[in-house]
Design a protein around this nucleic acid. Structure first.
Length: 318
DNA sequence: GCAATTTGACCACG
DNA sequence: CGTGGTCAAATTGC
């Protein structure tokens, strides 16, 4: 009786859907590779390929995550940014998935608007209890001075920061992000980014929950008149994200804390800036936080790569 | 003016 | 009771 009961129906559904998506994505990938439609410019084709790759990788890793449920193991994808399926097989499922939730709590308040209005929460479909059952996995993203970011290319979603906390024993605070479409589309995916203590070039990104938002799917009105209007169609900015948007987002991310620096524009000017370990201890500067946080520059909070090298290609080609 | 971040307070859990 | 996670008002950026 204890076989697959541990998987909630949500997880099953998600898994099934992911499987379908993966299959479709792979098929599309093959198609794209085999039939290079001359209609599209090579750049478009390449972009398409990248997009498909993203889809595949996302699906695969989502599946992986689902299989692992809430296992403490961390998935490290640093050394192999290009490949996305590396770590699955080794050891198989490590821990018993029974650790999902051992407490038989029968209280499942689907809607919080029913009884108490002590806190005017909106529609909390998932209670805090359930939140713990949400699939959780983490990756490590490494930043390189001129490389940009190395790591899995999954963060095609738009995140919104909702908190930051100092973690005991950790040198740097942890940032909390949630899907931008949480309220609009009930997407409960969250992620938290923390800079590694040892390697200042490594960020640990922990995801919790999968995206249920349909930001990827369809541009609602789809007015053929204006195609390049970026602000008019922010919805597609996720899976169908264009390099432009990406760069914009990245830029805004990087511009976060450039105030204290002489040249904020030099985002990648690593050598100029003091090394990470310069921090040491700023006990005397308690009131003023260090602005030299490299983390802020390279904050892998949101989407980053994939399209990033694409514009590099343009430069290179010339 | 709107939307995203900041930041202190609040809350839940171990 | 300490710690981590979230909320929400204030603030900032666009």
């Amino acid at each position: 009786m204890e076989g697959m009961d541990m998987l909630s129906w949500e997880q099953k559904t998600l898994l099934n859907e992911l499987l379908v998506g993966l299959e479709a994505a792979k098929k599309l990938q093959t198609r794209l590779r085999e039939a290079p439609s001359p209609l599209f410019s090579p750049t478009t084709a390449e972009t398409n390929q990248i997009l498909v790759n993203q889809i595949v990788s996302s699906c695969e890793r989502s599946l992986l995550m689902l299989n692992w449920s809430s296992s403490p193991t961390t998935v490290q994808l640093i050394p192999t940014p290009a490949t996305v399926v590396p770590v699955v097989n080794s050891g198989g499922v490590p821990e018993s998935p029974a650790s999902i939730n051992g407490s038989p709590r029968s209280e499942e308040f689907v809607d919080g608007g029913g009884s108490s209005d002590s806190h005017h929460r909106q529609d909390y479909i998932f209670n805090s209890k359930k939140r713990k059952m949400l699939p959780k996995w983490s990756e490590k993203v490494r930043i390189s001075p001129e490389r940009g970011l190395e790591g899995p290319q999954d963060d095609v979603y738009s995140w919104r920061k909702y908190g930051q906390k100092d973690i005991l024993g950790a040198k740097f605070p942890r940032s909390y992000y949630r899907c931008t479409h949480r309220s609009t589309q009930n997407c409960w995916a969250t992620k938290q980014v923390q800079r590694s203590d040892g390697d200042a070039t490594v960020f640990e990104v922990t995801y919790r929950g999968t995206h249920t938002c349909s930001q990827a799917i369809t541009p609602p009105p789809a007015s053929p008149e204006k195609q390049e209007d970026t602000r008019l169609r922010p919805a597609i900015s996720t899976t169908t994200q264009k390099p432009k948007d990406l760069l914009q987002s990245l830029k805004s991310n990087l511009t976060v804390r450039t105030d204290g620096l002489d040249d904020g524009k030099d985002v990648f000017s690593f050598p100029d800036t003091p090394p990470f370990y310069t921090y040491g201890d700023f006990s005397h500067v308690e009131s003023s936080p260090p602005i030299f946080d490299v983390a802020d520059w390279f904050n892998p909070t949101v989407e980053i790569d994939t399209t990033f090298p694409s514009f590099l290609h343009e430069s290179i080609y010339y």
